[in-house]
Amino acid sequence: MPITTADVNRLRQAQSEAVRLAQGELQKLWFELSDMPPARFRDALMELIPALVRRYQEVGGTAAAQWYEIVRAYYFNDTFDTHIYYGDKTLTDAQQAADTDLRRLIRWKAGVLWDNGDTPANPDELFNFLNNVVDSRIRDTARYTVRGNARRDPRKPRYARVSNAGCCAFCALMSSRGYVYKSEDTASFSGSSSFHRNPKTGEETCRCEIIPQFRSGDNRIEGYSPERLERRYREAYDMLNDGTLPDDWAEDMKAKGISTRRATDPSTITYVMRRLHPDAYGDGIKP
């Protein structure tokens, strides 16, 4: 029984539900604490938000681990004990460093709780930032959980980064490799082992999922065609290598500090991909 679109949708829906519950709890917490003086409010958030995030990382990670067991059972009858992962470690082992990092982010962003010269305090900016961080950390845990279990599975499945319709050019570039990942050495996603987000807002801009393939050519995921994605990538790559880049594109790239020569640079290749196929990507560049 192949892994299908319905299976991928179940994985995504489980994460969306975990995010919904976590953000609802964040909203309640915010209203309970927001009348505090800014310094006390910041310190309370630094103490309470990591625990909230951890709780729902466990919810989303458990759902992802169970999902992996279910789709694995389509092919094998043997027992495989799954774990929850965050990054390259189990969630338990990664938690202390993750909590410290989150507290650092909150302290940094909490500056908006105070007036700054002519700029008034803007607590809503911090609230939106925290909502986005909650979203990304829960979804990342699910992705890392599927990837981590695929890596340690004795059946050694390959797995792919599967993008969704309307994804950005970067996600399409990473997804174009198809089901080639199977180990620590081959799964770094070309130097980007994490999933990207807006560095200013923390907003999750990636909706990719990590999907295993237990039998070559078996998966049936509607809309995911690594062959089509690779053709678009190759078209951009060849244009850069052949020196056929339009002059106005080259001038715009130089003005933005993007190399026009390094076809292996993701910033370079995705710029050309977005220009060549503006309607194919959520961040396409139209004339």
Rank of each mutant, 00 (worst) to 15 (best):
T4Y: 08
E58W: 08
L11Y: 10
R20A: 15
E47P: 06
T4S: 06
T5C: 07
L29T: 05
E58G: 01
D7F: 13
Y56N: 01
L33V: 01
M36L: 14
E17F: 12
V8W: 08
A18E: 03
R20F: 14
R42S: 07
E17V: 15
S16E: 15
A51H: 04
D7P: 12
A22L: 04
L48F: 01
R55F: 07
E25Y: 04
F31V: 09
A39G: 02
I49A: 07
E25V: 06
D35S: 14
R42T: 08
L11I: 12
R10T: 14
A14F: 11
L33E: 08
P38Y: 10
A14M: 13
D43F: 01
A39D: 10
L45T: 03
L26K: 08
P50F: 10
N9I: 13
Q57C: 03
S34D: 11
P37K: 00
A51C: 04
E32G: 01
E47W: 09
G24E: 08
Q57T: 02
L52S: 03
E58D: 03
A22I: 04
V19G: 00
S34M: 14
A22Q: 03
V53R: 01
K28L: 15
F31R: 05
R12S: 12
A22S: 03
D35F: 13
